[in-house]
Design a protein around this nucleic acid. Structure first.
Lengths: 308, 308
DNA sequence: GTAAAAGAATGAATTATATTCATATTCACG
DNA sequence: CGTGAATATGAATATAATTCATTCTTTTAC
């Protein structure tokens, strides 16, 4: 009914004192303003200006409307400015999900660094253990997914981050440390410690044990990398972890890291985003920072399997 | 550019979760909403809703716009409600001017009583000594004028309030108290005390002295009725005042009131308003209260000239 | 007080904008 | 993968806004 156009008209008329001037400033004709004014006055059933005098004067109702205009129009101006920031890709939302537990280690520093420079981007990190993240990404519930399975999907772009080796962590005292390479069959007699997620999501199963049709002796789970390492060190099982996740714990000397299979078990981590977002500055920048951070964090790490 | 219509659309869609439902509530077709949404999204250069999911979800830009809508729309609602009050004549403005000094005496109580019942009417009283009030009334700078000269003017309605006699106040000891009626010529030897306004505005000049071509001995002015009366009582002059303005001072016994000329000098006070406002409730009601107050205030007053 | 100038109002014609209708496309769910 | 429900799209239509040409009103200056 009442529209912002009308408020802008009211303001212009009071500001310039005449329909002629106001019309000019609004890039309209005097006639247009006259018609418009008549229209709202008759719709509201009140008169807003007294035109019998020059400069035209506001009626009481006009004053009230002007007051509203003065409080509403600035809000709209700032809203439109924000819209431009969204449009320009300077502001936005980045809902990130990780499929891989250990990714916290390098992602957190990346996010912190990113936040410093993109204050207008709302960053949100969630673990995708209870839902499948890629469809959510497609549908816009998520904006970034960190995954090691780049399943080709409509409208999804995968940006490779880095390649890493999945190593088997065992206690230093464990007999397996005697082997050069650990065959799948060796795990028949071991308790395997994993994160508490579906086996589908764990490379050790999908890429190593299942192809060899091997089931470990037992499986137990732990939430945190640190807990796994402690269990391994005390000889209560073995676990498979990325080399970079394992690195800090190898210093202590209680555990060793062994290559899996003949060639080692390698995997690549990808950052998945919607194709349409690929050229958005704030998304592009996140990808760059993620990559940089990976290199920085992984540079010092040169963990290869313990060789004898 | 961005309009309230769009904000209302955003709110409806988020509230009902689908274009179909929202369209229904807005009395539009789903197609209309789809077009409208597409239009503003392309104008702003941002997408506001993710339609790939159901219910449709807001993007970050959409959230921002919704926030604005939630702060702006209530303001508009309350503004429109106020407009209805103005339209219904429940709210408005009453800029009153009096041409006659003494009118304060009965007008003030009237205004006070009026204010109690019409809280949404902004009442303002000014003395019209430095400007001509009737043209200002015509042009809407004033809304009510109290005058004793009902000059016929386009669009102006005069409501008669009451008829009164202008009496000559003299000291009890004054020789004029011996006369039954005071002729104009009698003032040739008197100092006349008036309000400090143009003689054009004083009935004693226009209706009495000038027709008889008489000039008083001297003229001096006083701001307030009380001051005039005190000057008169101390024998420093005489003054012409309405009977009701003089009434309270006759009790004291220091002054007397005499009729002017053969028939007495009478005048009628009118309340002038713009014709278009005559049917507006808040104006109508002011007229009523003004009339009532006059009667109440003048009822007890039965001042006639002192007769011997 | 009147004429000229400037501003505001008006009505019809035009243009722009919004809405609908009919239909195609997409998405969610079994 | 098909089905039902939702959204998108394009052309046609309806509605609303704007302009043009003109008249009416107010102000100003002589």
């Amino acid at each position: 009914m009442l529209e912002l156009k009308h408020l802008r008209t009211i303001v212009a008329i009071t500001e310039y004192g005449s329909l002629v001037l106001a019309a000019e400033k609004l890039f309209l004709t005097q006639s247009a303003l006259s018609h418009q004014l008549k229209e709202i006055e008759s719709r509201l059933g009140v008169s807003l200006f007294i035109r019998k005098s020059r400069p035209v004067r506001l009626t009481a109702a006009g004053e009230r409307l002007l007051e509203t205009a003065r409080s509403v129009l600035p809000i709209m101006t700032s809203t439109e400015r924000d819209m431009q920031r969204f449009a320009g890709g300077e502001a936005g939302r980045l809902h990130i999900a990780i499929e891989c537990h250990s990714c916290f280690d390098w992602l957190m520093p990346a996010i912190n660094q990113y936040r410093n420079h993109w204050k207008d981007v709302e960053v949100d990190l969630s673990t995708a253990f209870n839902f499948v993240p890629l469809p959510a990404l497609q549908k816009g519930r998520l904006d970034v997914v960190i995954t090691s399975e780049p399943k080709p999907l409509n409208g999804i772009h995968y940006e490779p981050l880095f390649r890493f080796e999945i190593l088997l962590a065992v206690a230093n005292t464990h007999p397996l440390t005697q082997l050069e390479r650990v065959p799948a069959t060796a795990l028949r007699n071991e308790t395997l410690i994993t994160y508490p997620v579906d086996q589908e999501r764990l490379d050790i199963f999908t890429q190593f044990l299942r192809p060899a049709d091997v089931e470990p002796l037992a499986i137990r789970t732990a939430e945190l990398t640190l807990m796994m390492v402690q269990l391994v060190a005390s000889g209560r099982g073995v676990c498979a972890l990325p080399n970079w996740a394992l690195a800090p714990y190898l210093q202590g000397g209680h555990i060793s890291a062994l290559s899996l299979g003949e060639t080692g078990l390698f995997s690549t981590l990808y950052l998945a985003v919607r194709e349409e977002q690929l050229d958005t500055p704030y998304v592009r920048e996140f990808i760059n920072i993620a990559k940089e951070t990976c290199f920085q964090n992984l540079e010092g790490i040169n963990v290869v399997a313990t060789l004898h």
